[in-house]
Lab assay of single mutants.
Amino acid sequence: ETQAGIKEEIRRQEFLLNSLHRDLQGGIKDLSKEERLWEVQRILTALKRKLR
């Protein structure tokens, strides 16, 4: 995994995270989306740690 590859994956995950946040802010309670949001946040945290 290169730095560029990790950064690209971070961009993808952040896009997905923002999309999930928008969907959930629409007021629709969706447990699967909430679980996915937490999963994406965990992935992002792990990726950012790899960059250090």
Rank of each mutant, 00 (worst) to 15 (best):
G27A: 07
Q25T: 11
L44Y: 01
G26R: 04
L17D: 01
I10S: 00
R11K: 10
Q13N: 10
L31V: 13
L37F: 13
L24Y: 05
Q41I: 15
E35R: 12
E14P: 00
R22E: 09
A4D: 10
E1M: 11
T45E: 14
I43N: 10
L16I: 13
K29M: 06
K33I: 15
L20I: 07
K50S: 08
K7G: 02
E9W: 03
R49H: 10
K48R: 13
R36K: 12
R52H: 14
T2H: 08
E8P: 00
E9V: 05
I10R: 01
L47N: 00
L31M: 08
N18G: 06
S32W: 13
E35T: 06
E1R: 05
K33V: 12
A4S: 08
T45D: 13
L17I: 04
Q41G: 03
K48S: 01
Q13P: 01
S32E: 15
F15C: 13
R12G: 02
L47E: 00
K50H: 04
Q25C: 10
L16Q: 03
G27Y: 03
T45V: 11
V40G: 01
G26W: 07
R52W: 14
K29C: 06
Q41V: 14
I43F: 09
L51I: 04
L51C: 04
K7C: 10
E34W: 15
R11I: 08
I10E: 01
L31H: 13
Q25W: 07
H21S: 09
Q25I: 09
Q3I: 15
K33M: 09
L51F: 03
K7F: 06
A46Q: 09
W38D: 13
L37H: 05
R52A: 14
D23E: 13
R12N: 07
R11W: 03
L17W: 09
G27W: 04
E1P: 06
K50M: 08
T45R: 13
R49Y: 06
F15R: 12
Q25E: 08
E9P: 02
G27P: 10
L31W: 06
L24W: 04
A4P: 05
K29N: 11
L37R: 03
W38Q: 13
H21C: 15
R42C: 07
I43T: 10
L17A: 05
L24D: 03
E1A: 11
T45F: 09
A46D: 14
L47P: 00
Q13W: 15
L17R: 05
K7P: 02
K29S: 07
I43S: 05
H21F: 13
D23T: 04
G26N: 13
A4R: 09
G27E: 11
L20G: 00
L16G: 00
R22A: 13
I28N: 09
D30I: 03
L20V: 01
R52M: 14
I28L: 11
I10M: 02
H21Q: 14
E34V: 15
A4W: 07
K50G: 02
G26T: 09
L47D: 00
G26C: 12
R11H: 03
L24K: 02
I10C: 03
L24S: 03
V40S: 02
Q41E: 10
R22M: 10
V40M: 06
E35Q: 12
R11N: 04
K29G: 09
R12E: 04
E14F: 04
S19Y: 04
K29L: 11
D30M: 02
I10G: 03
I43R: 08
R42M: 11
Q41W: 15
L31E: 13
I10H: 00
E35W: 10
K29T: 09
N18M: 14
E35F: 11
Q25Y: 07
E39F: 04
G5M: 14
R49L: 11
